[in-house]
Amino acid sequence: MTSTAWNRLSLNAAEGSLITAIRECMVRSPRQLNNAFEADAELLDLGAGGLLALTVDTLNDGAELATATTPYAKGWLTTTVSVSDLAAVAADPVAVLVSCSLRRDRWTLEDAREFGRGASEAAERYGCHVVGGDTNWANEESFTSCALGTLRRGSVLSRLGARPGDALYVTGPVGAGNAVGFRTLALGGTAAGDPWLPEARVAAGDPLRRYARACIDTSDGLLSAAVSLAELNGLGVEVVLHDEVYAPIASAVAEAARLPRWCSAAAEWGEFELLYAIDPADAERCSRAMSERGLQPAHVGQFVAGPELLLIDESGQRRDLRNLLPRMRALDPAGSLLADLRALLTDGS
């Protein structure tokens, strides 16, 4: 990684500069296959031991947990955020470690049981187990997971490899994460019924290994993911979002708030689908294989040789992502989110 890597639109500048400073003082492992930001998980060649994928993610109290409003949902999400990174490199999950920092005045033993049940049932859903971790009392709540998986030689998938003219596909409906987070913080709470439980798309592994050229998960939103793939590959991208690509809850929340649906693809509560680049000649075969595994792949754009980073929304309007995404990220989730978002839209973004 170069010292200027964080200047990409896909990275928060302050966060990127910190990552750069930390990594500049570290010795790179000779076993590591990827450079910084080039894959959702870190990829290690263990020689005769095979290929290993590993990743770690932390969820902090506040906006990051706005989509998980029960202890069970927090446990499920804690496992899912890291296993989703394994899914994006087409790894087979093996194990998850979970670390919890909990507030003594808020957590009961029953809450702890529900958290553990959520974390464990998510891992089982993905074909692995939570095997241990760490728990502490703290002033602020946070949850960290580390996921480990194995890779097959000859089929390593990263964020690199997209080419001009490649089609851009997503493994399922988009916008649910942003809709749930927005509903919680801007519309005054959650709907009755079961909590939202996003799913890491481990089931996409075989088709991705066979057909995809590059892949990233949408944990930070679809538009940010598309820009990341484009910038890492030195390409432009045109994201085309029709009404049918959105999750039902995204459409319902957009209607209730009188907002365009594309907003649910532009903020950073992602839905943990996988966004992948593919040769258009392989797209139909890959989609059939995805559908056979219960997924709902959708064509959402294409990569281009030029520098443009564009969204073509459900109304057909073209929006410059270089202007739109920084302004979306500047919105304060803890502030007057609905009013600020409407002001941004009125201003012409």
Rank of each mutant, 00 (worst) to 15 (best):
T2D: 08
T2Y: 04
S3T: 12
N7Q: 13
L9M: 02
L9W: 03
L11T: 04
A14M: 13
S17Y: 00
I22T: 09
E24Q: 14
E24K: 14
R28I: 07
L33Q: 02
N35K: 12
A36Q: 01
E38M: 05
D40W: 05
D45G: 02
D45A: 03
L46T: 03
A53V: 06
L54E: 01
D61A: 15
D61I: 10
G62W: 02
G62Q: 03
A63R: 14
T69Y: 07
T70I: 12
T70N: 06
Y72W: 12
A73H: 06
K74H: 11
L77Y: 10
T79S: 14
T80W: 06
V81R: 06
S82T: 15
V83I: 13
S84G: 15
D85L: 08
D85S: 14
L86E: 11
A87S: 11
A90W: 08
V96N: 03
L97R: 03
S99C: 08
C100L: 12
W107L: 15
T108M: 11
A112I: 06
A122D: 01
R125W: 11
Y126D: 10
Y126V: 03
G127Q: 07
C128R: 11
V131D: 06
G133T: 08
G133A: 03
D134S: 15
T135H: 10
N136M: 07
W137M: 03
S142W: 10
T144P: 05
A147H: 03
L151C: 04
R153A: 10
S155E: 05
L160D: 02
A162F: 00
G165Q: 09
D166C: 15
T171D: 07
A176R: 01
V180Y: 05
G181C: 13
L185D: 08
L185F: 07
G189N: 00
T190L: 10
A191I: 09
A191P: 10
A192K: 09
G193Q: 05
E199P: 01
V202A: 09
A203C: 12
G205A: 13
P207W: 06
A214C: 13
T218R: 04
L222M: 07
L222I: 14
S224I: 13
E231Q: 12
E238V: 15
D243L: 05
Y246Q: 01
P248Q: 10
A252G: 13
A252V: 13
A252C: 09
V253Q: 15
L259C: 12
R261Q: 11
S264K: 10
A265S: 15
G270H: 04
E271N: 11
E271S: 15
E273Q: 15
L274M: 05
A277T: 08
D282E: 05
A283N: 00
R285P: 01
R285N: 01
C286P: 06
S287V: 12
R288P: 06
M290T: 11
S291W: 07
S291G: 05
E292S: 03
R293Q: 02
G294N: 00
P297T: 01
A298P: 09
G301R: 08
G301P: 06
L311C: 12
I312H: 06
E314N: 08
E314D: 05
Q317L: 13
R319L: 15
D320F: 03
L325S: 05
P333R: 04
A339V: 04
D340I: 00
L341H: 02
L341E: 00
A343R: 04
T346H: 02
D347A: 00
S349W: 07
